[in-house]
Design a binder for these strands. Structure first.
Lengths: 338, 338
DNA sequence: GTGAAAGCGCTAACAC
DNA sequence: GTGTTAGCGCTTTCAC
């Protein structure tokens, strides 16, 4: 105890935490003693006494081994969260959530392991809704990223996927493509629904009938894109399709590879746009036009809103952020030769 | 307090922790009461009383925004660590370490935030060595992944990069390539040194002079691979090189793209092998032959060794694991046409 | 087999 | 401004 070294008692606490009025001289004495003794306060005891853990929980889906969250999506998000959390004096506590496991999110709060939490990869399924409702009922500080529940007032941070897809379709039309299709992800993710909506809006704006525009559903994986190649090749050959927007870069890349086997090259025989502007978009030949999503900012915004509101005890009004998405044009959507 | 519901006192603790002899009947009573009251023990208080945090710290390098740890490397590692930690009842506490920031690793132990820790992306630089020495001096349970210090007895888990590169070189020679080069990473990483060693061994085994085999040094990024393309193209044109092993898939891919601009195609004009068997290796055209590294296993092994030894108070003997690496053959190292 | 009591190392009233 | 005094909610000797 540094109190021996100095002369005081709980004053040490005040000095170290910078609370209450302290005479500069004693402050110095305490600081010196602490330094001399290499004193490091026990975080465990502090947490206990303060009844707050100082931890920001992060719940992320445990995808099957390989390609877990390779998609640079989680990487960016985590970095953004981490930077802000550090700045606010919080540590990051990670929880992998198996898809089938019971979602005991609130238990993390009850156990006081975390003071706030960010949920990644939430799905629109009953078990998830239940778990979130519980959090909300208990007034927990939590936030969803990249997933919204239209009928619930939860805090969310998302990208404006609808605008993104609108921009993509507009771009393709300007490039001379005429029959645009969509390879979307499953509707348990709100961003899939957003993309569909953006797609329809874009067609409507151009007075194009959305009803006969091809919309295929995959699962966001490269494999899924690849497996749709046969069908897409047929549509292209029949003249019913000449460009496609995919809900993820991975699906786009799989599709691109599959169509190459059909002798169809992106940017020549058809136009292709992906989503996420992942590293992979730069690896294909031709490189993939994509929509860049500010994941880092999403993470840091989410953390900032949660953590600063946690310290303020003010009535926090909740938030539903929608971050802008931007088109990055590359070879896969080059001018269409007639 | 569940004690009201039941009748006992500290017995609750015993029941919930399954220690000491308990009459089955009281055990049931306590359990029922706990269930009825939705009792969840405070992790914070438990940690405090037990003087252990129950956290496994993970230190990972904070790389500049984009492509942070996209490389599936960290993803796999984290998943492996997470799975084992969960199984052992530990939570994961994440710390991003800026390259320039002071490395106060031991402070995490002093503050009792963590009971053990895994360090990813450690470099062989003085500040790092200093921080690790401090951990070792204080007998902390820690482990390095993918980095060894030859002169220090630290716990490590690594892949057998030397064998991997040997296998790669052998494979290329068998395919008919004759003048193999190496595009390596910087020697602050032990795996770079390992690869160089494996490379030299392989040449020596084949009675080839290692001295005039081209060895280039990049920094593991795609950009770095790309920027070596000019030099490599020249070597190929001069007949001084016809195949190359790159220290990472990303460098290999950058090189492949750069050489394509020189009109040189992997698998036709030259042979190419990468390292890590990342997702990107399947995206290039041709697909990239690579060395598959068991990152998931590395993570889970590291966690297992640390956490089981932490509970056993036995003399833990330390460990230096070397996991096997395997060659995955794809198009970039096809038979060389003469 | 179970209760009683001490205490983990801090913070936060409350006096002085 | 600073010391005194209670706990925070568990675990853990030690008796019984």
């Amino acid at each position: 105890m540094a109190r021996l070294a100095g002369v005081s008692e709980a004053t040490v606490s005040r000095v170290l935490n910078g609370v209450g009025p302290i005479k500069e001289e004693t402050r110095q004495r305490v600081l010196e003693a602490a330094a001399a003794l290499h004193y490091v306060p026990s975080a465990i005891a502090q947490q206990f006494a303060r009844r707050r853990s100082g931890n920001l929980g992060i719940i992320l889906p445990l995808l099957p081994k390989v390609n877990l969250f390779a998609t640079h999506y989680f990487s960016e998000l985590l970095s953004g969260i981490g930077a802000t959390a550090k700045q606010e004096g919080y540590d990051l506590l990670l929880f992998f959530q198996g898809h089938d496991e019971p979602r005991h999110y609130d238990r993390l709060f009850q156990a006081q392991k975390i003071d706030a939490c960010i949920i990644l990869g939430a799905q629109d399924v009953p078990a998830e809704r239940e778990a979130l409702k519980e959090l909300h009922a208990a007034s927990r500080a939590f936030c969803l990223i990249s997933q919204r529940y239209e009928d619930e007032p939860y805090n969310t941070v998302d990208a404006d996927h609808a605008s993104g897809v609108r921009a993509a379709v507009k771009h393709l039309l300007e490039k001379g493509y005429e029959r645009i299709g969509l390879l979307n992800g499953p509707s348990v993710y709100s961003n899939s629904r957003d993309r569909l909506e953006g797609f329809r809006q874009a067609l409507a704006e151009q007075q194009l009938a959305a009803s006969d525009a091809p919309v295929l559903i995959g699962n966001y994986s490269r494999k899924s894109g690849y497996s749709h190649a046969d069908q897409v090749a047929m549509l292209i050959r029949k003249g019913e399709l000449d460009a496609i927007v995919a809900g993820s870069d991975r699906m786009a890349i799989g599709l691109l590879q599959g169509l190459k086997e059909h002798g169809l090259t992106a940017g020549i025989h058809y136009g292709l746009v992906g989503c996420d502007d992942s590293e992979g978009s730069r690896l294909t030949d031709p490189a993939l036009t994509s929509l860049t999503v500010p994941f880092y900012e999403a993470g840091s915004e989410a953390a900032a809103r949660l953590l600063t509101s946690a310290s303020d005890e003010e009535a926090e009004s909740g938030f539903q952020l929608k971050l802008p998405v931007q088109l990055v044009v590359r070879g896969s959507s080059a001018v269409r030769p007639l």
